[in-house]
Amino acid sequence: MGCIFSKENRQFPGYEDPINLASQTAFSVSEVEALFELYKSISSSIIDDGLINREEFQLAIFNNRKKENLLANRLFDLFDVQQQGFIDFGDFVRSLSVFHPNAPEEDKIEFSFKLYDLDNTGFIERQEVKQMLIALLSESEMKLADETIEIILDKTFMEADVKGDGKIDKSEWQSFVCKNPSLLKVMTLPYLRDITTTFPSFVFNSEVDEIA
């Protein structure tokens, strides 16, 4: 028994061995291969170079070319684990793994903390949260007066910033999320359970004929 590999996928820029990726993530080998079908489509949507750039990432999220979005940009930065200015297949799978329904909750809490810690200081600061609220309002039809935003921030920090130093650290975030589990909803993608049925064509491109 053994593995038979085709060379086609391995020659794809940014490609990484699915067996290796499956061993490091919440995905099976078949699921990693199905994700490769999705990855190929996103990474060739603007420039067919086998890598996902910032614009391709935003295009995939918004389904159309749209002006820059702060939160999609932040997600891109976190997916771009090696800070290369693009997402390669390994980055894509490892990052999406955190969003798997079976991924450990601690990983989801950690990722969500980083997501909101826009300037990577190790704290979620009031100014960052305000910036994200304003970005949200600019993309929606919701209009809120500045004083309403401040009331929302006061209420949020009163609950989350237990130490009262004007910023939320990791342990405060953990407690806050435990009291407000709906905040982690955005960190779980039920689609990832059915990835092989969403992208069945992976079977035709599978590199793994048989796994011992």
Partner: peptide
């Protein structure tokens, strides 16, 4: 729900920019 009943992060999580589900809805 009215924004004032929600905390800031509940509101932010509604951003389309964080909606990775759209990657799978082709």
């Amino acid at each position: 729900a009215a924004p004032l009943t929600m905390n800031a992060f509940e509101l932010i999580s509604k951003s389309q920019g964080l909606n990775l589900s759209s990657l799978f809805e082709k």
